[in-house]
Write a protein that binds this DNA or RNA. Structure first.
Length: 453
RNA sequence: UCCCCGGUAGCUCAAGCGGCAGAGCGGGUGACUGUUAAUCACCAUGUUGGCGGUUCAAGUCCGCCCCGGGGAGCCA
């Protein structure tokens, strides 16, 4: 009886098997007199399966059409390969051409392409080693994110994609309007795509205890950088009874857990990036897993940056009360500490209304986690649980308190200390793969001026 | 949104001072008894991103626009 298996399953066999059936896309073909070597890939793993096709097994016309990019089904015996580059190969008894790919028009070649070119054919680029590897790692990372939280009594919640408020003033909003209408009448008020599920997550954690969201978020910022997309995925845990320290502990453990498991389960794919993209990738990931994250207060960070200012000649002078700029983040992460850095207790004026005011009345219990190469991947805080302080904050920021009555209710009824953070999933994938542009970490990226597919 | 760099064959790139638009790879055809970035021989590749201008002559100089990349701001 024939068994249909993926290439990954086939390659991990420890014995020869008769009559296997396998399907895939042709990656390369080499001809000899009387037979051909054809390597196929089915996306199950990085490696290809070498097929040996005797020319008498297939009519000439079909044989001709087995070209790079075409899809085929093969039936044959799995045998140990004589060649040294692979353990197994399939001696084909039957080969069926499923879909041809005109070699004069098929845009992918066997050779390496530039990322810029591949972005223009995003619908085909998953057929390359690099992009299939990124997407496999993306998938595993998402899986381990769920595993991490599920194993710790977190509940996976779904917060709304359509929202009525801008949450935290975290950037420009996409407004939602019914086609044919000039303004939002559907909801009888303005509607937007969410920039964060946090406020809803806070409500749900006040009953479910520990929750997390993992879904798309949207920012209409006209920012064209390799680290920004208009649509991106965020992981947002929110925990009742967690203070800032518990929050940082969880975030660190979380990043370590996912990184460690991706390293272990995607070794081959990670190895590809180490070889062709960044020689230091694996060392960097292992360091993240092993070493404790450096934790410094914002004020300390400013002091460190101030004393480095002369030597480094920063474009922006580090001043208490100002944001930590990109060049500063890079300095802290890549020069000073050479690893992940957690910066906490930021000036109150820099942060949104919901962050808990510290006893000094000057700072809030906020924290950011900076990773080497990608910068900020986590932003979080302990939330303000005191009713009067929260309202005071909102008044200071001139917010429409009526709109947030439901959120304020959480402080009226059984309010507790609670915390949470957001992790930019796509940036995290960039970190795991040493990919330098977010457009390559997302299968079909949305950025200002570009909406293909 | 601001600053810088770029756009030439399917891909990656080359073409002093403005003077016949080229190479490698890929593709096609053929050869080769086990290849693996296969090898060897031969063949074809073009609105030089678009529009306008200067000039006897523009890939090259000028203006505007479009697209891509890098950096900054904002952030995740």
């Amino acid at each position: 009886m024939k068994q249909k298996q993926t290439v990954r399953e086939i390659l991990k066999q420890d014995r020869e098997i008769l009559d296997l059936e396998v399907c895939g896309w042709v990656r390369t073909r080499r001809d000899s007199k009387g037979f051909s070597f054809v390597e196929i890939n089915d996306g199950s793993c990085l490696q290809n399966l070498q097929l040996v096709i005797d020319h008498t097994r297939l009519d000439k016309n079909q044989l001709k059409k087995i070209t790079l990019g075409s899809s085929i089904k093969a039936v044959g015996d799995l045998v140990l390969s004589i060649g040294s580059k692979q353990k197994w190969e399939l001696q084909c008894k039957k080969v069926y051409l499923l879909g041809e790919a005109d070699p004069e028009k098929y845009p992918l070649q066997k050779k390496r392409h530039s990322d810029e070119f591949l972005r223009k054919i995003a619908h085909l680029r998953v057929r390359t080693n690099k992009y299939s590897a990124i997407n496999r790692i993306r998938s595993k990372a998402a899986f381990f994110i769920h595993k991490f939280f599920q194993e710790r009594d977190f509940h996976y919640i779904h917060t709304p994609i359509i929202t009525s408020s801008d949450c935290e003033g975290a950037g420009e909003l996409f407004q939602l309007i019914k086609r044919g209408e000039k303004e939002t009448k559907f909801f009888s008020k303005n509607a937007y795509l969410t920039v964060s599920g946090q406020l809803a997550a806070e409500a749900l954690c006040m009953g479910l205890g520990r929750v997390y969201t993992f879904g798309p978020t949207f920012r209409a910022e006209d920012s064209n950088t390799p680290r920004h997309a208009a649509e991106f995925w965020m992981v947002e845990p929110e925990m009742a009874f967690f203070d800032l320290n518990d929050n940082i502990d969880l975030a660190e453990e979380f990043i370590k857990f996912v990184t460690k498991n991706v390293l272990e389960t995607c070794r081959e794919d990670i190895e590809l990036f180490r070889r062709f993209v960044d020689k230091e990738l694996i060392g960097r990931l292992e360091k993240v897993v092993k070493d404790p994250f450096v934790r410094i207060e914002y004020s300390e960070a400013i002091e460190i940056l101030k004393s480095a200012h002369k030597k480094e000649n920063f474009e922006f002078e580090p001043i208490w009360g100002d944001d930590i700029h990109t060049e500063h983040e890079k300095y802290l992460c890549e020069k000073q500490f050479k690893g992940p850095v957690v910066v906490y207790n930021y000036p109150r004026t820099l942060k949104p209304f919901y962050m808990r005011v510290n006893d000094d009345n000057n700072t809030v219990a906020a924290m950011d986690i900076l990773l080497p190469k990608v910068g900020e991947v986590v932003g979080g805080s302990q939330r303000e649980e005191r009713l009067n302080v929260l309202i005071e904050n909102m008044q200071k920021k001139n917010m429409d308190i009526e709109e947030y009555e439901w959120y304020i209710d959480l402080r009226r009824y059984g309010s507790v200390v609670h915390s949470g953070f957001g992790l930019g999933f796509d940036r995290f994938v960039m970190f795991l793969c040493a990919v330098s542009n977010i457009r390559d970490a997302i299968p079909f990226p949305r950025t200002p001026g570009t909406l293909s597919y």
